[in-house]
């Protein structure tokens, strides 16, 4: 009698485990365990997003040497009227004194306090084709992110890792990211209020 009972029980267990085994495993192994496990045998899926870049000229980002290389979009060639020295062929003071038409009249600096930031905090006074760091080191417009990183170091860290900013192309390699100024107007870096671009339709009453 007892033996029969044991046999019966074991039969039931075998029957149940037939289907429940998989589920048990998936419950006990968390997603993160699974991910770290699969990472060990990770081989690059050899997928590229190069052709979604549509001929964007990429510049390798400097200053993030301890992580894998990534790129920003070439900037200088996209600036209309570059090089700046074509107009700025005299020192700034001289140009200001002239009674000629004022350039950059529409430019307003809404970036930090006026006691902190002025035009020359970023733009090199002598070499207007370049930007300047706090130390006086000249930086190309292609690498303007270095300038932002001086104050916004936390954002720069996130940007380098991928938690801040946007990618060009796709998720697959190569990693080409938008530079800071692609989204933030450096003279007015905040985002503006606006209407949503679409509305959601909820049936019945509007809450």
């Amino acid at each position: 009698m007892n033996r029969k009972l044991i046999l019966c029980m074991s039969m039931i267990m075998v029957l149940c485990s037939g289907c429940h085994d998989n589920q048990q495993n998936s419950h006990s192994e968390t997603l993160l365990n699974k991910v770290s496990h699969a990472t060990k045998s990770y081989v690059d899926p050899s997928l590229t997003s190069e052709h979604y870049l549509h001929g964007v000229k990429k510049i390798q980002v400097e200053g993030y040497e301890n992580q894998s290389t990534f790129f920003v979009e070439e900037r200088t060639q996209k600036i209309t009227q570059f090089p700046c020295m074509r107009c700025h062929n005299q020192p700034l003071k001289k140009m200001k004194n002239k009674n000629s038409q004022r350039a950059h009249w529409n430019m307003k600096l809404k970036h930090a306090d006026s006691s902190v930031m002025s035009c020359t905090t970023c733009h090199d006074q002598k070499q207007l084709d370049k930007l300047t760091l706090l130390t006086g080191k000249q930086v190309s417009f292609n690498h303007s992110y270095q300038q932002c990183a001086q104050c916004h170091f936390q954002q720069a860290k996130d940007w380098g890792g991928g938690a801040h900013g946007k990618r060009l192309g796709g998720w697959a390699k190569p990693r080409v990211v938008m530079s800071c100024t692609a989204c933030h107007n450096p003279h007015e870096p905040g985002f503006h209020k606006r209407w949503p671009s679409i509305i959601s339709k909820v049936p019945g009453e509007i809450k």
Binding site: E73, R75, I79, A103, H104, T181, A182, N185, R194, W195
Partner: peptide, 27 residues
Amino acid sequence: EEKKTPTPPKKKSCTSPNCTCSQPSSA
């Protein structure tokens, strides 16, 4: 919406021919 969205970006892009600022960037 039609009235509103296209205007703010236009304001931002420079109208002055001398401008060399970074506004008309790709984004």
